[in-house]
């Protein structure tokens, strides 16, 4: 009997496919998310848009919030640790959190090194905006990926950019010869073996979800159309006028992402979605996606 194997960690993410993982800040929101059909919840102290507004240093959530969420739902509970913050991750693991997001949404604890995730029993998800980042995170032990997008903006453009880029890069490496692959591994800054695996299989070895800027059911469906395995929704749900209805609508649009009549139906009268931020209005320090490369 073996726990924490790569198959067990990656398999857990496979079971989330086609699903929606929702950010929640307390037990009540967690129950709403579960009732709406979320496949998992991400327990947080503040959603990304609030982190953006508050400024300062964003850290792992108060364990009380995580514990309270774990108590009230039967679906998996995820939580965020700062990039490179080994101790926050170990603390979350000790509490029995089901998945850790080593996340650029929080202020990085280490500007050079990510956590060596292979050494943990609990699986990790990490953000990536290109194939280089994706394969570096997998090499470190990430069992699931997500686009970085630009969290807390309610603007889908960056998540689209990242997913399109990664998928385009995969198609490109599929057509490279062995000698070209050696060079490409050097250019991308990734291990050759992992790149060869992608070149041969035509896909990433782990699940890749969309995240960072999903604000409407159509946004979620668009990301599925572009090849995402599922969707993380952060600020969108509990910053909207009617979270319950909004959460159900996102779940349905993700399942039936090509059923446009259904998406039209579930999109009706959802109230005002979060206001959103035009990406060019962010200064360099406000761009979360540039953290942890």
């Amino acid at each position: 009997m073996e726990t924490g194997t790569s198959r067990v960690k990656r398999g857990m993410a496979e079971m989330q496919k086609g699903g929606v993982i929702m950010d929640v800040m307390n037990a009540e929101q967690a129950k709403i998310a579960e009732a709406a059909g979320a496949t998992a919840v991400m327990a947080l102290e503040r959603v990304p848009s609030d982190i953006r507004a508050a400024g300062g240093v964003a850290r792992m959530a108060d364990p009380t919030i995580v514990e309270e969420v774990m108590k009230v739902v039967s679906i998996p509970v995820m939580a965020k640790a700062r990039i490179g913050h080994i101790t926050e991750a170990r603390v979350l693991e000790s509490m029995g959190v089901d998945y850790i997001d080593e996340s650029e949404v929080l202020t990085p604890a280490d500007e050079v090194f990510h956590i060596s995730k292979n050494e943990f029993t609990v699986p990790f998800v990490c953000g990536a905006k290109d194939l280089g980042e994706a394969l570096r995170r997998i090499q470190e032990g990430a069992a699931m990926l997500r686009t970085k997008g630009e969290p807390g903006t309610g603007n889908i453009v960056e998540a689209v950019r990242h997913l399109r880029l990664i998928n385009g890069q995969i198609r490109k490496v599929q057509n490279l010869s062995k000698d070209e692959l050696y060079h490409e591994a050097k250019v991308l800054g990734v291990p050759y073996d992992l790149l060869l695996q992608v070149s041969e299989s035509g896909k990433l070895p782990v699940v890749n979800f969309a995240a960072g800027g999903v604000a409407t059911p159509s946004d979620a469906a668009l990301m599925m159309e572009l090849g995402a395995d599922g969707v993380f929704v952060g600020s969108g749900i509990f910053k909207s006028d009617s979270p319950e209805k909004f959460a159900r609508a996102i779940v349905e649009a993700t399942t039936h992402f090509r059923d446009y009549k259904l998406i039209a139906e579930v999109s009706k009268n959802l109230g005002t979605p979060m206001k959103g931020i035009e990406i060019s209005k962010l200064n360099a320090a406000e761009r979360m996606q540039d953290r942890g490369l």
């Binding site: 194997t5 067990v8 857990m12 079971m15 998996p76 693991e93 089901d98």
Partner: peptide, 25 residues
């Protein structure tokens, strides 16, 4: 929870040799 998820060799009636069974939550 997930940290207790595991894989093991499992005998199954009607199948000759054990299969590798992956248990996730």
């Amino acid at each position: 929870r997930q940290r207790e998820s595991f894989e093991t060799d499992l005998p199954i009636k009607g199948i000759n040799e054990p299969i590798r069974a992956v248990f996730i939550r």
